[in-house]
Design a protein around this nucleic acid. Structure first.
Length: 411
RNA sequence: CGGGGAGUAGCGCAGCAUGGGAGCGCACUCGCUUGGGGUGCGAGUGGUCGGCGGUUCAAAUCCGCUCUCCCCGACCA
């Protein structure tokens, strides 16, 4: 712990208006470099990596294949689809030394369609689901709320290619299901609602929102069935239950694009009937950093972050209370090592600071579990476990620790 | 881009109306102390007062320009 680069703050930073931003700064997860541009510090990165790996796992299970596309994109491609003129000043443009137009990718429809048109020849290559996790650049009119809306941010974007509308429906449903699994695996309550397609274009689209009181979007949700909407619905046709109003943070968006890009960029394949047809496309985004911020919005209290287990930067912190007691120190180190050997992400607080200081900081950073080495541990070999999410404290012996931690992880 | 606010030590701020010592709390360093909820005491380190120009014997303070950051609106993962 003493070696960990996690510069925490006792006081609330003035620039942070929303709780997730404030807590990320206070917990030493991020720092700002410029408006809408952030350093991701070790704790922040660990959490992001957890989310990214959950995303990878679920997308791979849904037949997605990961690749990495260029962030640096020639303006030519954007001129082909007309978005060079349409996208506006949000697109960060510049010229290279030969005065050719370039931009930093805010999204990758053009680039993925370019590789698709070059390499997809036959219906036999379809369906194809390609995704990447990459830094995107958007010169937002007004960056705000920390990593919630920044100018440089990590996004997962997946693109589906199908031979026909029927195939697109299948791919779309696969992604819809994968998204549901992703947010559930992150330990988050989410809701999916019909949405407008916006600048991306296309037909059907859904937004995925994380439920949090501080969310910017109002959602009407039926407590009985799965119906939800961003608009007011007077009655729920099937079940007649009262719709309840919730607030949500948009973290994912899926679109059925159809042939918007494949036609304008001439991305055709030869179908079974020997005819050339445009690829039917879909695109599917998740804001990784925004998901992390939303998780904090949904899981915190006045003392700090209450990480869902699966996306916590670390799972367990071991806190020795008695600093001058060698047995206490050794016990903390040994228990921490035991947990690591058992596959947990545990660290122990080896700093020469008061017990209260350690407790406050452990709560702030939001370790799901604190293992406290106090009087009882030294006299009666009883460890104390504090569960961050509900504040409960439990006693156990060292022999029982493994089983107890395992149980907490599974809950 | 329109409207509002702020730049003084790493962080949070006072000082500015009425020009003349650059201060407070936290953090940091050292010593002692304390050790179950950001211990206490003492001694220290650290600042071109966002930048440029002007007024003045003298500018953090007055005037002009400029840069940056934050908040509200249109946009979005």
């Amino acid at each position: 712990m003493s070696a960990l680069f996690a510069p925490t703050l006792k006081e609330n930073p003035t620039e942070a208006e929303v709780i997730s931003h404030s807590l990320m700064l206070r917990a030493g997860m991020i720092r700002q470099l410029s408006s809408g541009i952030y350093h991701i510090l070790p704790l922040g990165l660990r959490s992001l990596e957890k989310i990214m790996n959950i995303v990878r796992r679920e997308l791979n299970r849904a037949d997605g294949q990961e690749l990495l596309l260029p962030a640096l994109q020639p303006g030519e491609l954007w001129k082909e689809t007309g978005r060079w003129d349409i996208y506006g000043p949000e697109l960060i443009r510049f010229q290279d030394r030969r005065e050719r137009d370039f931009c930093l990718g805010p999204t990758h429809e053009e680039v993925i369609t370019d590789i698709a048109r070059k390499e997809i020849r036959s219906y036999r290559q379809l369906p194809l689901l390609l995704y990447q996790i990459q830094t995107k650049f958007r010169d937002e009119i007004r960056p705000r709320f920390g990593v919630m809306r920044s100018r440089e941010f990590i996004m997962k974007d997946l693109y589906s290619f199908d031979r026909d509308q029927e195939g697109l429906q299948i791919s779309y449903q696969k992604m819809y299901d994968a998204y549901s699994k992703i947010f559930t695996a992150c330990g988050l309550e989410y809701i999916a609602v019909r949405a407008d397609s916006g600048v991306i274009g296309g037909d059907l689209s859904h937004e995925f929102l994380i439920i949090a009181d501080s969310g910017e979007e109002k959602v009407m949700k039926c407590p009985k069935c799965l119906t939800a909407s961003t608009q007011e619905i007077s009655h729920c046709p099937e079940c007649q239950a009262e719709m309840e109003e919730k607030r949500g943070i948009e973290v994912g968006h899926i679109f059925q694009l159809g042939t918007k890009y494949s036609e304008s960029m001439r991305a055709y394949f030869v179908d079974q009937d020997g005819k050339e047809k445009p690829l039917i496309m879909g695109c599917y985004g998740i804001g990784i950093g925004r998901t992390m911020a939303a998780a904090i919005e949904a899981n915190h209290d006045e003392n700090g972050i209450k990480w869902p287990w699966n996306i916590a930067p670390y799972e367990i912190i071991v806190i020795p209370v008695k600093l001058k007691n060698q047995a206490s120190i050794e016990l903390a180190e040994s228990i921490s090592q035991q947990l690591v050997d058992e596959g947990y992400e545990a660290i122990w607080d080896d700093r020469e600071v008061s017990a209260g200081y350690k407790f406050k900081e452990a709560d702030l950073i939001g370790f799901p579990v604190q293992v406290i080495i106090g009087e009882k541990a030294l006299k009666n070999s009883i460890l104390e476990i504090k569960i961050r999410s509900n504040g409960k404290r439990l006693d156990c012996t060292r022999e029982q620790l493994t089983a107890m931690v395992k149980k907490m992880k599974n809950d």
